[in-house]
Nucleic acid binder design. Structure first.
Length: 322
DNA sequence: CATCAGGGCCCTG
DNA sequence: CAGGGCCCTGAT
Protein backbone atom coordinates (compact mmCIF):
# COMPACT_ATOMS: atom_id res chain seq x y z
CA UNK A 1 0.00 0.00 0.00
CA UNK A 2 1.43 3.33 -1.09
CA UNK A 3 0.94 6.20 1.32
CA UNK A 4 1.37 9.44 -0.55
CA UNK A 5 -0.79 11.88 1.40
CA UNK A 6 1.09 13.65 4.14
CA UNK A 7 0.10 15.69 7.13
CA UNK A 8 2.72 17.48 9.19
CA UNK A 9 2.14 18.05 12.89
CA UNK A 10 4.31 19.65 15.49
CA UNK A 11 4.37 18.12 18.96
CA UNK A 12 5.83 19.75 22.04
CA UNK A 13 6.55 17.24 24.80
CA UNK A 14 7.04 18.17 28.44
CA UNK A 15 10.58 19.09 29.47
CA UNK A 16 13.15 17.59 29.63
CA UNK A 17 12.67 15.30 26.66
CA UNK A 18 15.24 13.02 25.04
CA UNK A 19 14.22 11.98 21.53
CA UNK A 20 16.44 8.98 20.83
CA UNK A 21 16.09 6.93 24.01
CA UNK A 22 12.34 7.57 23.95
CA UNK A 23 11.76 6.53 20.34
CA UNK A 24 14.39 3.83 20.16
CA UNK A 25 14.65 1.13 22.82
CA UNK A 26 17.58 -1.07 21.80
CA UNK A 27 16.17 -3.98 23.81
CA UNK A 28 12.96 -3.94 21.76
CA UNK A 29 14.29 -6.07 18.97
CA UNK A 30 12.76 -4.70 15.82
CA UNK A 31 11.23 -6.78 13.12
CA UNK A 32 10.07 -4.82 10.15
CA UNK A 33 7.53 -2.40 11.60
CA UNK A 34 9.88 0.44 12.48
CA UNK A 35 13.25 1.98 11.71
CA UNK A 36 15.44 4.34 13.63
CA UNK A 37 18.45 6.53 13.11
CA UNK A 38 19.60 9.30 15.43
CA UNK A 39 16.94 12.00 15.42
CA UNK A 40 14.48 10.11 13.20
CA UNK A 41 12.03 7.28 13.75
CA UNK A 42 9.79 5.70 11.14
CA UNK A 43 6.99 3.42 12.20
CA UNK A 44 3.66 2.08 11.12
CA UNK A 45 0.53 2.42 13.19
CA UNK A 46 -2.89 0.90 12.86
CA UNK A 47 -5.17 3.51 14.35
CA UNK A 48 -8.90 2.81 14.41
CA UNK A 49 -8.43 0.31 11.62
CA UNK A 50 -6.54 2.75 9.40
CA UNK A 51 -2.93 1.90 8.54
CA UNK A 52 -0.71 4.98 8.63
CA UNK A 53 3.02 5.58 8.37
CA UNK A 54 4.65 7.98 10.77
CA UNK A 55 7.98 9.75 10.62
CA UNK A 56 9.08 11.45 13.82
CA UNK A 57 11.93 13.93 13.54
CA UNK A 58 13.62 15.66 16.41
CA UNK A 59 13.59 19.41 15.88
CA UNK A 60 14.56 20.63 19.29
CA UNK A 61 16.83 20.00 22.22
CA UNK A 62 16.40 18.21 25.52
CA UNK A 63 15.42 21.40 27.28
CA UNK A 64 13.50 22.94 24.38
CA UNK A 65 12.05 19.88 22.73
CA UNK A 66 10.04 19.83 19.56
CA UNK A 67 9.00 16.83 17.50
CA UNK A 68 7.87 16.96 13.92
CA UNK A 69 5.40 14.18 13.22
CA UNK A 70 4.71 13.44 9.58
CA UNK A 71 1.71 11.21 9.01
CA UNK A 72 1.51 9.30 5.73
CA UNK A 73 -1.81 7.93 4.56
CA UNK A 74 -3.58 6.71 1.45
CA UNK A 75 -6.22 9.43 1.53
CA UNK A 76 -6.76 12.71 3.32
CA UNK A 77 -7.37 12.08 7.03
CA UNK A 78 -10.26 13.74 8.88
CA UNK A 79 -9.28 16.29 11.53
CA UNK A 80 -10.73 14.38 14.46
CA UNK A 81 -8.89 11.25 13.35
CA UNK A 82 -5.61 13.14 13.38
CA UNK A 83 -6.42 14.70 16.75
CA UNK A 84 -7.12 11.34 18.34
CA UNK A 85 -3.98 9.91 16.76
CA UNK A 86 -1.90 12.69 18.31
CA UNK A 87 -3.31 12.13 21.77
CA UNK A 88 -2.71 8.42 21.40
CA UNK A 89 0.92 9.08 20.47
CA UNK A 90 1.25 11.38 23.48
CA UNK A 91 -0.13 8.58 25.64
CA UNK A 92 1.93 5.69 24.26
CA UNK A 93 5.23 7.54 24.44
CA UNK A 94 4.39 9.39 27.67
CA UNK A 95 5.15 12.73 26.07
CA UNK A 96 3.44 14.61 28.90
CA UNK A 97 5.13 12.74 31.73
CA UNK A 98 6.59 14.84 34.53
CA UNK A 99 9.88 13.23 35.54
CA UNK A 100 10.99 15.84 38.08
CA UNK A 101 9.92 14.00 41.22
CA UNK A 102 11.54 10.77 40.03
CA UNK A 103 14.77 12.59 39.22
CA UNK A 104 14.79 14.44 42.52
CA UNK A 105 14.40 11.22 44.49
CA UNK A 106 17.15 9.51 42.52
CA UNK A 107 19.85 12.15 42.97
CA UNK A 108 21.56 10.33 45.80
CA UNK A 109 21.42 6.85 44.34
CA UNK A 110 24.94 5.95 43.23
CA UNK A 111 23.73 3.63 40.50
CA UNK A 112 20.80 5.58 39.16
CA UNK A 113 22.11 9.15 39.26
CA UNK A 114 24.76 8.73 36.55
CA UNK A 115 22.32 6.80 34.35
CA UNK A 116 19.76 9.58 34.62
CA UNK A 117 22.41 12.07 33.69
CA UNK A 118 23.01 10.14 30.48
CA UNK A 119 19.39 9.42 29.65
CA UNK A 120 17.85 12.61 31.02
CA UNK A 121 14.48 13.14 29.38
CA UNK A 122 13.94 9.54 28.30
CA UNK A 123 10.34 8.39 28.55
CA UNK A 124 9.17 4.85 29.18
CA UNK A 125 6.57 3.66 26.73
CA UNK A 126 5.75 1.30 23.92
CA UNK A 127 4.39 1.90 20.40
CA UNK A 128 1.84 -0.93 20.48
CA UNK A 129 -1.82 -1.16 21.33
CA UNK A 130 -2.98 -3.68 23.92
CA UNK A 131 -3.98 -6.22 21.26
CA UNK A 132 -0.66 -5.84 19.46
CA UNK A 133 1.32 -6.12 22.65
CA UNK A 134 -0.54 -9.30 23.56
CA UNK A 135 0.50 -10.89 20.27
CA UNK A 136 4.08 -9.78 20.87
CA UNK A 137 3.91 -11.03 24.46
CA UNK A 138 2.82 -14.45 23.27
CA UNK A 139 5.65 -14.80 20.77
CA UNK A 140 8.11 -13.81 23.48
CA UNK A 141 7.06 -16.75 25.63
CA UNK A 142 9.48 -19.58 26.04
CA UNK A 143 11.58 -18.58 23.09
CA UNK A 144 14.94 -17.04 22.37
CA UNK A 145 15.14 -13.57 20.87
CA UNK A 146 15.88 -14.87 17.40
CA UNK A 147 12.89 -17.17 17.42
CA UNK A 148 10.57 -14.47 18.80
CA UNK A 149 11.60 -12.10 16.02
CA UNK A 150 11.13 -14.81 13.43
CA UNK A 151 7.63 -15.65 14.72
CA UNK A 152 6.56 -12.01 14.84
CA UNK A 153 7.95 -11.33 11.38
CA UNK A 154 6.11 -14.26 9.81
CA UNK A 155 2.84 -13.16 11.44
CA UNK A 156 3.26 -9.61 10.15
CA UNK A 157 4.08 -10.80 6.66
CA UNK A 158 1.05 -13.07 6.55
CA UNK A 159 -1.62 -10.93 8.17
CA UNK A 160 -0.23 -7.40 8.22
CA UNK A 161 -0.08 -4.81 5.46
CA UNK A 162 3.11 -3.65 3.81
CA UNK A 163 3.20 0.14 3.78
CA UNK A 164 5.41 2.25 1.56
CA UNK A 165 6.09 5.76 2.71
CA UNK A 166 9.00 8.19 2.74
CA UNK A 167 11.04 5.70 0.73
CA UNK A 168 10.64 2.99 3.39
CA UNK A 169 8.76 -0.29 3.37
CA UNK A 170 7.42 -1.29 6.76
CA UNK A 171 4.79 -3.77 7.92
CA UNK A 172 1.67 -2.59 9.71
CA UNK A 173 -0.30 -4.64 12.24
CA UNK A 174 -3.67 -6.15 11.31
CA UNK A 175 -6.85 -5.22 13.16
CA UNK A 176 -7.83 -6.76 16.50
CA UNK A 177 -10.13 -9.64 15.57
CA UNK A 178 -8.46 -9.79 12.17
CA UNK A 179 -7.62 -13.48 12.45
CA UNK A 180 -11.20 -14.70 12.47
CA UNK A 181 -10.81 -16.43 9.10
CA UNK A 182 -7.46 -17.91 10.01
CA UNK A 183 -7.42 -21.39 11.50
CA UNK A 184 -5.22 -22.60 14.31
CA UNK A 185 -3.68 -25.09 11.89
CA UNK A 186 -2.76 -22.30 9.49
CA UNK A 187 -1.06 -20.43 12.32
CA UNK A 188 0.77 -23.55 13.37
CA UNK A 189 2.13 -23.93 9.87
CA UNK A 190 3.97 -20.66 10.52
CA UNK A 191 5.99 -22.46 13.19
CA UNK A 192 4.65 -20.63 16.18
CA UNK A 193 3.84 -23.90 17.94
CA UNK A 194 1.36 -24.08 20.82
CA UNK A 195 1.17 -20.27 20.75
CA UNK A 196 -1.23 -20.60 17.82
CA UNK A 197 -4.00 -21.53 20.24
CA UNK A 198 -3.23 -18.54 22.48
CA UNK A 199 -3.26 -16.11 19.56
CA UNK A 200 -6.53 -17.50 18.22
CA UNK A 201 -8.21 -17.18 21.61
CA UNK A 202 -6.90 -13.66 22.18
CA UNK A 203 -8.08 -12.62 18.74
CA UNK A 204 -11.52 -14.17 19.42
CA UNK A 205 -11.74 -12.26 22.68
CA UNK A 206 -11.18 -8.94 20.94
CA UNK A 207 -13.42 -9.92 18.07
CA UNK A 208 -16.28 -10.46 20.51
CA UNK A 209 -15.62 -7.10 22.12
CA UNK A 210 -14.98 -8.67 25.52
CA UNK A 211 -12.15 -6.28 26.28
CA UNK A 212 -11.68 -2.59 25.62
CA UNK A 213 -8.29 -0.98 25.97
CA UNK A 214 -9.54 2.55 26.58
CA UNK A 215 -11.90 1.39 29.33
CA UNK A 216 -9.20 -0.70 30.94
CA UNK A 217 -6.81 2.25 31.01
CA UNK A 218 -9.19 4.08 33.31
CA UNK A 219 -9.45 1.23 35.81
CA UNK A 220 -7.20 0.50 38.74
CA UNK A 221 -4.23 -1.80 38.55
CA UNK A 222 -5.87 -4.72 40.32
CA UNK A 223 -8.79 -4.67 37.90
CA UNK A 224 -6.46 -4.42 34.93
CA UNK A 225 -4.44 -7.35 36.16
CA UNK A 226 -7.51 -9.45 36.82
CA UNK A 227 -8.98 -8.72 33.39
CA UNK A 228 -5.71 -9.43 31.58
CA UNK A 229 -5.17 -12.72 33.38
CA UNK A 230 -8.56 -13.86 32.10
CA UNK A 231 -7.04 -14.02 28.64
CA UNK A 232 -5.99 -17.52 27.70
CA UNK A 233 -2.23 -17.50 27.27
CA UNK A 234 -1.59 -14.55 29.55
CA UNK A 235 0.19 -15.35 32.79
CA UNK A 236 2.31 -13.48 35.32
CA UNK A 237 5.21 -12.71 32.97
CA UNK A 238 3.10 -11.24 30.19
CA UNK A 239 0.89 -9.30 32.60
CA UNK A 240 3.90 -7.76 34.24
CA UNK A 241 5.15 -6.45 30.87
CA UNK A 242 1.69 -5.17 30.00
CA UNK A 243 1.21 -3.22 33.22
CA UNK A 244 4.39 -1.29 32.61
CA UNK A 245 4.51 -0.88 28.83
CA UNK A 246 0.81 -0.53 27.99
CA UNK A 247 -0.75 0.67 31.23
CA UNK A 248 2.15 2.77 32.51
CA UNK A 249 2.45 1.65 36.11
CA UNK A 250 5.89 2.72 37.26
CA UNK A 251 5.69 1.18 40.70
CA UNK A 252 4.75 -2.41 40.00
CA UNK A 253 7.46 -5.04 40.26
CA UNK A 254 6.41 -8.57 41.12
CA UNK A 255 8.01 -10.76 38.50
CA UNK A 256 11.47 -11.52 37.19
CA UNK A 257 11.99 -14.13 34.48
CA UNK A 258 15.10 -16.34 34.55
CA UNK A 259 17.07 -14.50 31.87
CA UNK A 260 16.27 -11.13 33.44
CA UNK A 261 17.25 -12.48 36.82
CA UNK A 262 20.71 -13.32 35.49
CA UNK A 263 21.16 -9.87 33.98
CA UNK A 264 19.97 -8.08 37.13
CA UNK A 265 22.29 -10.25 39.23
CA UNK A 266 25.25 -9.11 37.17
CA UNK A 267 24.13 -5.46 37.02
CA UNK A 268 23.16 -4.90 40.63
CA UNK A 269 25.35 -7.43 42.46
CA UNK A 270 28.10 -8.10 39.93
CA UNK A 271 27.23 -11.76 40.29
CA UNK A 272 28.10 -14.37 37.68
CA UNK A 273 24.93 -15.10 35.65
CA UNK A 274 25.59 -18.81 36.26
CA UNK A 275 25.03 -18.18 39.94
CA UNK A 276 22.21 -15.61 40.06
CA UNK A 277 20.82 -13.76 43.07
CA UNK A 278 17.41 -15.14 44.17
CA UNK A 279 14.41 -13.35 42.68
CA UNK A 280 13.12 -12.42 46.14
CA UNK A 281 16.36 -10.69 46.99
CA UNK A 282 16.35 -8.74 43.71
CA UNK A 283 12.77 -7.61 44.27
CA UNK A 284 13.68 -6.50 47.77
CA UNK A 285 16.65 -4.58 46.39
CA UNK A 286 14.36 -2.69 44.00
CA UNK A 287 12.19 -1.55 46.91
CA UNK A 288 14.66 1.29 47.46
CA UNK A 289 13.26 2.96 44.36
CA UNK A 290 9.84 3.18 45.97
CA UNK A 291 6.98 4.21 43.73
CA UNK A 292 9.34 4.53 40.78
CA UNK A 293 10.91 1.11 41.07
CA UNK A 294 10.05 -0.14 37.64
CA UNK A 295 10.90 3.19 36.02
CA UNK A 296 14.26 3.17 37.80
CA UNK A 297 15.07 -0.34 36.61
CA UNK A 298 13.92 0.64 33.10
CA UNK A 299 16.49 3.44 33.09
CA UNK A 300 19.27 1.10 34.18
CA UNK A 301 18.17 -1.57 31.73
CA UNK A 302 18.02 0.83 28.79
CA UNK A 303 21.43 2.21 29.71
CA UNK A 304 22.83 -1.31 29.44
CA UNK A 305 21.30 -1.91 26.02
CA UNK A 306 22.42 1.49 24.75
CA UNK A 307 25.95 0.55 25.78
CA UNK A 308 25.54 -2.63 23.80
CA UNK A 309 24.98 -0.53 20.65
CA UNK A 310 28.53 0.78 20.82
CA UNK A 311 30.52 -1.70 22.87
CA UNK A 312 30.73 -5.46 23.02
CA UNK A 313 29.45 -6.86 26.33
CA UNK A 314 30.34 -10.57 26.27
CA UNK A 315 28.35 -11.67 29.32
CA UNK A 316 25.24 -9.93 27.98
CA UNK A 317 25.56 -11.56 24.56
CA UNK A 318 25.74 -14.86 26.38
CA UNK A 319 22.40 -14.20 28.08
CA UNK A 320 20.31 -12.78 25.26
CA UNK A 321 21.41 -15.20 22.55
CA UNK A 322 20.05 -13.48 19.52
C1' DC B 1 23.46 -37.79 14.91
C1' DA B 2 20.52 -37.12 19.43
C1' DT B 3 19.36 -34.45 23.26
C1' DC B 4 18.09 -30.36 25.66
C1' DA B 5 16.79 -25.91 27.45
C1' DG B 6 14.81 -21.85 26.51
C1' DG B 7 12.59 -14.13 27.45
C1' DG B 8 5.60 -19.27 29.98
C1' DC B 9 1.27 -21.01 30.39
C1' DC B 10 -2.34 -24.37 31.04
C1' DC B 11 -3.91 -28.41 33.03
C1' DT B 12 -3.79 -32.36 35.93
C1' DG B 13 -3.35 -34.96 40.14
C1' DC C 1 1.10 -26.37 44.55
C1' DA C 2 4.39 -29.28 41.85
C1' DG C 3 5.31 -30.99 37.58
C1' DG C 4 4.39 -32.58 32.82
C1' DG C 5 3.45 -31.19 28.10
C1' DC C 6 3.63 -28.07 24.48
C1' DC C 7 6.49 -25.98 19.74
C1' DC C 8 10.70 -24.90 17.22
C1' DT C 9 15.54 -23.80 17.11
C1' DG C 10 20.34 -23.45 18.00
C1' DA C 11 23.80 -25.08 21.15
C1' DT C 12 26.27 -28.97 22.77
Amino acid sequence: MNLNVTDKIEITPSTPFAFDPTFHKPDHFTSGDNLWEPGIRWQTLNWQGMPVGIKFTSEGTIDEPKISMMVFSEAQLPHDFVDSLISEIRYRYNLDLDLSDFYKRSQKDAMLAPVIEKLRGMRPGHPSSLYEYLIIGVVLQNASVRRSIQMFQVLLENYGTLLEFDGKELWCFWNPGGLQNVSEEELRALKIGYRAKFIKKIDDYFSKGLIDEQTLRNQDRETQMRELLKLYGVGPATVWYLLFDVFHHWDFFNHISPWEQKIYSKLFFDRDPENPVPVEKLLKHFERYGKYKQLAVHYIWEDLFWKRETEHIPWLEEEIRI
